[in-house]
Design a protein around this nucleic acid. Structure first.
Lengths: 268, 268
DNA sequence: CGATTGGTTGAGCCCATTCAACGAATGTGG
DNA sequence: CCACATTCGTTGAATGGGCTCAACCAATCG
């Protein structure tokens, strides 16, 4: 134990001596001309605190910003990446809406998630250096490309960034466990209610209405995500409508009874 | 772009100059007496390459070993941690078998995984600093406790370790996506077949028989994991037995027709 | 020894699926 | 501009896969 602490103090000393102080130096080394070329992307981004830069200082964000983020538009229906593509970058959704889905050998597919502003795409590819799912834009969108090799290097220099990223990865694990619970032990109406509640919550965090949802995905996408058939989703939406929980007009859904919907999920 | 590269070279230079060379120094600073107290744990571990130290050099493993791993026995039926416990450490299974499960408010629970030698427990807790599932030993087991704060510090100093850890987290995401596919779009017999094939594969990687399985979990555990009722699991095992795919004697299961089982899953 | 836990099997039921028809909206090319 | 195809969504009727309920057995444990 004693030996442990000694070594650790040394290690920590080394890290502190070099990591944080040097962190600022590189920026100072850049000529004024270079500085003028640096356009802040993340710094002025409205969803900064929902995204990778969450919890970083302005200085840190600036560093991340200039060396990492590369904005890129994606048209509705286009793929950001496909299964089998070699993995080079993570993508943070800036604006828009995506779905990710994995393919089974026999042609069946499973939607594994819907991503909106601030959420990260491609985390699953880190493990194998290849994308194992398809990411498709469900509306015209903009993503920030984050070259992963560089990001890892930056993580080594910014412990704060690395710590946040560990949390991002862990959150994705938690999210998926929630889906496992949903798929493994909820009935259809509970699944759909949970889905709508989750979507509403994520919209409202982003300062959008938490009761008026504009679905960007088809009934089939929802069904795949929830382990249901599209007809079942359609029927359930109609039933929720009849029961006064929702107002359903195609993809425009207004939540009329938030409490009733939550009761269905079982939480609260 | 030019500016990018300049700064990056500097950053990389800083890292290289301090990270790897210094890495060895702390050990040299320790007195001989301290050295004698250091017992290698991971270094001699038979599953080293399946566990956190995978891909590290001997020197790096030694460092990880001495400051991180703390072996700890867990009796069958005991909890390694419970939902709500504050998160301090990850645990690597050294020997034995665990299950993790999350609890729904209304009492329902969902088994989210079974962990065997070399697999890491607690990854989901990183996101919130609290454990969000229960981890229970299904047989007498030994785990290596890895205090996470220290591990993060070490990751900052060993880029290799950090990179591997990113992959570990990502692999867990991929694993869970596989379960989502299973729960969302497979029929009961496919699920059970996939489960058995996966279990057999993991046993055989660990130099154990890939055809003679000794299940450590109950039918109910399996059912929860696969989104089925225990009766369904029992019936399916009986059917597989009748069809000559398996030899089932309680928890001792021998796979008789590997090919037939794989055909059920749909892969190959 | 009874009590408890885990496993198997049967009978009937129900929820979600399958199959099918139809309508609305959108886009495309002549 | 219309005719046509395509995609998406809704709704009905019938089916069936997995669930519920229940009885029974085996192993383990106090």
């Amino acid at each position: 134990m004693q030996g442990d602490t000694v070594i650790f103090k040394v290690l920590r000393g080394v890290r502190n001596a070099i990591n944080f102080p040097r962190l600022r130096n590189p920026l100072h080394l850049v000529s004024p001309m270079d500085f003028s070329e640096l356009k802040s992307v993340c710094c002025g981004c409205s969803i900064r605190e929902l995204c990778l830069p969450a919890g970083l200082t302005d200085q840190e964000v600036l560093l991340l910003d200039q060396h990492m983020s590369h904005r890129q538009p994606i048209k509705k229906g286009e793929s950001l990446y496909r299964t089998g593509d070699t993995f080079r970058s993570l993508y943070a959704v800036s604006t828009g809406f995506f779905k990710t889905s994995i393919l089974h050998e026999d042609g069946r597919s499973q939607v594994t998630g819907f991503q909106m502003a601030g959420e990260i795409l491609g985390l699953d590819a880190i493990s194998t250096d290849r994308h194992i799912c398809d990411a498709v834009a469900l509306e015209d969108s903009v993503v920030c490309e984050v070259p992963f090799e560089r990001f890892e290097e930056l993580g080594q220099l910014m412990s704060n960034l690395q710590r946040r990223f560990n949390r991002t990865l862990s959150s994705e694990i938690v999210r998926e466990q929630g889906i496992m619970l949903l798929l493994g032990s909820m009935r259809s109406e509970e699944r759909l209610a949970a889905f709508l509640v989750n979507l509403a919550k994520r919209f409202s965090i982003r300062k959008q209405s938490g009761s008026e949802l504009v679905l960007r995905m088809t009934r089939e996408d929802i069904g795949s995500y929830l382990g249901l058939k599209l007809e079942t989703v359609s029927r359930l939406l109609s039933r929720f409508h009849d029961e006064g929980l929702l107002d359903v007009h195609g993809r425009n859904i207004q939540i009329l009874d938030q409490v009733g919907l939550n009761r269905l999920v079982g939480s609260t």
